[in-house]
Write a protein that binds this DNA or RNA. Structure first.
Lengths: 341, 341
DNA sequence: ATCAAAACTTTACGCGCGGAAATTTATTGT
DNA sequence: ACAATAAATTTCCGCGCGTAAAGTTTTGAT
């Protein structure tokens, strides 16, 4: 009863009294064999705990079960959470997710794409770095592999899933204008299209409401948003350059830095009595509920974006057709009212 | 000049005018071929951008270049950062890191181990879940694969690399006692040995300094430390159950929650005038510098732990010997003084 | 120029499995 | 009970590469 030399599928087949091709069929799709043989295989499986050699399997299958996930920055809790959700969906669907982080670096994204390609993946879910991305390399990749982009719309892949920045920014601008001074806009570094879209959305919303947009410009390509929010924030607050007492940050990580800056400058943040400044964010990052004060923000629908991305990818994989038109699906954000604004 | 049907190594070999076995040798170790042939290969490589089929390569090599990295919770910035450092070291050494997150769940850790095993990895770097880990499965894995454990010392693998909790906790306890009221200890959920070690280290340090240890107990197996710090913190602060005005948290994420609780209760945190409570953490998480106020803590030496883990693993892989004794390497923490305590 | 060592080429086999084709066996419905 | 169909079996080839063995060429030092 001890596990013997059952290493190959051949071994396992003879040990379980079934022919190897049938066993092979079973591993490709347990439903594809007769119920009785399936049962016999599974009995033997429990006895010998054999698993097919992954490399041999994937070498011969024209299509593997691998799905690549590439995110720009895994230390960002937004992407950590997205990765977690996507991984789970893939596993549940019988696929094998492989996670890569570009760590904010162009070359690492390129490397991830190359490595991924050599894995002959069934598909890929990519949140591009953005401006730092090598679009040519990415497009070439997407030509060969069914690819869904998410978060950052770089016009690559067969579909895009993300948030409707115009809706979400509009929502919070409207809220801020309605409940106090109209906000100025603390931008994020223009690392990706979201940065520009959110700025444009802010301007549009302000003009729609008859207000004058005021933007605090930020340059660079750094992904250390908190640091930037803190340093830039301290500078601005010290110089009293703030055009209004309300700041809408391009994302929560910037806001977290700005909250720290305000705290360190002795400014009370919030909408209540005796508060000097209101600060709002965007994304509803996992940590936003633990800031001081808790951050008012607009949530991105993490679960919906993850689900939809995965569904679209599975659709592409199933049909195998490269649709001529690139689908774009945008989800609405929801106002998350806490006490910072 | 356009890339032709150079798909296999055979194609590439003929295209570059070199025999396939030599090309194969080159890909296994570019140094192993003559400088002149290496140059010829690399010229052809630039021209045809061929990459060996990963599956075919790994099927035939007795030992792959894969290195598995398993962390318990990727949304924790500590592990995100460790993963980043380790990945880089592996890539630089010509290995191929594959990252898994257990997402705090026992079954996912088991799955990761199984998947990893089927990849015939050269080695593995594992930060175990801790109490939720299936130690039998893990030991069986480590019997077959050179394995280095880090962060959480579960007595698995051929070596362990981590922080010296007794030193680091001792350091901050001494600091807190020296500069104000002796601290009570807000534990983390006992998910892993670090939790118990840090509690024990706190008790030992307090007794060494002639103080009475006071512990705020926490149960459960949740990894949502901030949430726990916030909720438990609010309860304790509301009930005025705090034995002293100084709280040492078992880790920074708990401290972040407690800081939020104190803020929401209107308590001023810090060591200055008019501060009601001092709060300190442990780990120097990437976000600790952005809390309000910035968090006083003890840093873990991320880079040293990552480097040492990887070095030890490479040593194991190189020698191929299962050392009889399990090495343990602990790094010291450093006091990071900010304004929260 | 000479020669041994080093590097390369040719040839050949095997890894573990997917999958096709032809044949045999088992399962349905009437 | 019988065909008609579904499922398994047997046999075989190929995937792309590692790697061993034997023979050939190149290299570098004398």
């Amino acid at each position: 009863m001890v596990e013997r030399k059952v290493q190959t599928m051949e071994d396992f087949a003879t040990a379980s009294g079934i022919s190897r091709p049938t066993v092979s069929k079973y591993f490709n799709d347990p439903e594809s064999v007769r119920q009785s043989t399936r049962a016999r295989i599974e009995v033997a499986l429990a006895k010998f705990n054999y698993t097919p050699n992954l490399f041999a399997v994937n070498q011969n299958r024209k299509q593997t079960k691998n799905i690549g996930i590439i995110v720009p920055y895994l230390a960002d809790p937004f992407f950590a959470e997205m990765a977690r959700l996507i991984e789970r969906r893939c596993i549940d669907a019988g696929f094998w997710p492989i996670l890569f982080s570009s760590h904010g670096q162009r070359q690492m994204e390129i490397n991830a794409l190359e490595t991924l390609r050599s894995l002959k993946p069934a598909g890929a879910l990519i949140a591009p770095l953005g401006r730092a991305s090598d679009l040519d390399v990415m497009r070439k990749f997407a030509d060969d592999v069914p690819t869904v982009a998410f978060d950052s719309n770089q016009d690559i892949g067969d579909a895009f899933v993300g948030s409707d920045n115009f809706q979400s920014i509009g929502l919070i601008v409207e809220y801020l204008c309605r409940t106090g001074e109209p906000p100025c806009f603390f931008e994020m570094p223009p690392v990706n299209p979201n940065a520009n879209k959110r700025r444009a959305a802010y301007i549009a919303a302000m003009e729609r409401l008859g207000q004058t947009p005021e933007i605090i410009h930020v340059g660079g390509q750094s992904w250390e948003f908190e640091k930037m929010g803190l340093e830039e924030g301290k500078r601005i607050l010290a110089e009293r350059k703030l055009p209004t007492n309300t700041v809408l940050c391009s994302n929560d990580r910037i806001a977290i830095g700005l909250l720290a800056a305000a705290y360190q400058m002795g400014l009370r943040v919030g909408h209540g009595e005796g508060c000097a400044i209101r600060i709002a964010g965007h994304d509803d990052h996992p940590w936003s509920q633990f800031t001081c004060p808790p951050l008012t923000t607009v949530s991105q629908n993490y679960a919906a974006i993850a689900d939809c991305s995965v569904e679209k990818l599975f659709g592409l994989i199933a049909t195998g057709t490269k649709s001529e038109s690139r689908e774009v699906k945008l989800f609405h954000g929801q106002l998350v009212l806490r006490s910072s604004a």
